[in-house]
Computed example of a mutant assay.
Amino acid sequence: MSNTVFCRKYQQDMEALPFPPLPGQKGQDIQGNVSKQAWEEWQALQTRLINEKHLNMLDPDSRAYLMEQMERFLDNQETDRAEGYVPPEA
Rank of each mutant, 00 (worst) to 15 (best):
L45E: 12
A38R: 01
M57V: 10
L66I: 13
Q25M: 06
P20Y: 06
M57S: 08
L22A: 08
R81Y: 14
F73Q: 00
D61K: 13
A44D: 07
G27C: 07
T79A: 09
N56R: 14
P23I: 07
N76Q: 04
R48I: 13
R81A: 06
F19R: 14
P21Q: 02
V86D: 12
D80V: 03
E52Q: 14
N33K: 15
Y85Q: 02
T79Y: 01
P20I: 05
E78P: 03
I30R: 09
K26D: 05
V86K: 03
A82I: 08
P23D: 14
P60I: 08
D75E: 12
E40I: 04
M57E: 10
L66E: 14
E78R: 13
G27Q: 01
E78V: 06
D29G: 02
L55W: 01
K26P: 01
G32T: 09
W39M: 10
F19T: 11
P60C: 07
H54N: 06
P23E: 08
L66C: 08
E83Q: 12
L22N: 05
E78Y: 07
Q46E: 14
D61I: 07
Q46D: 04
I30A: 04
T47N: 14
Q43D: 12
R72H: 06
F73D: 02
Q25T: 09
K53P: 01
Q25A: 12
